[in-house]
Amino acid sequence: MTAAREEILQKIRSAKGVSSPEVAATAYAGIERSYQSSAQLSRKEILHLFEERLREYDASVYRASAAEVGAAVAGVLSGRGVHRVLVPEGLPLEWQQGAEFVADRGFSSAKLDGFASVMTTATLGIAETGTIVLQNVSGQGRRALTLVPDYHLCILSTNQVVETVVEAMRLLEPTRNLPTTLFSGPSATADIEMTRIKGVHGPRFVDVVLVGEE
């Protein structure tokens, strides 16, 4: 194994010359990055765009003030006919209304498969792509939670929504070592005649509650 490593690295060096971290760092600084990196829309427009993109993915979007989240959740769940919901540790208790909420205790895959619904918060929303960023932190939990259940209700504060992918990646930089999932709408495939089919293995149904006065 070490022989293979040395041989490959040696071949690389003889192919294009030896580099060093210092030389690489200097050259790296010269890479052009003149693409758009900051928001150009107003806050109102950004939130409007985010909602529009989510709806294009057939996600339903609801608005609620901070005090109304519990009631909004209860309303959404009852509309979906959901009675039992998996939740990660750290999700505010006052949001957990209108159904039975079961906290994740490291369930096996088979047990996870017994849950049809999951509710979490999120780290960020990206308006231009309708993307929501999930990380393994309190209130969001491990990656499998938001994957195995067929329905995902995601609660996000309006001030977590940014306009561009670039802004989002920069905000994520300090926590870049956490398991991170960017999801954009429900799972989908276009493998059959390029017809987009919603919902294959990941959640087929996604709703979003946007919290804030904006």
Binding site: R53, G106, I126, E128, T129, G130, T131, N136, R142, R143, A144, V165, R176, N177, L178, P179, T180, T181, L182, F183, S184, G185, P186, S187, A188, A190, G202
Partner: peptide, 20 residues
Amino acid sequence: TGERMNPYNSLWSGVHPGDG
């Protein structure tokens, strides 16, 4: 695929205890 963003991008490093 002609999408603004594909449905899932997963990013992680190595082993994350209790997750994956």
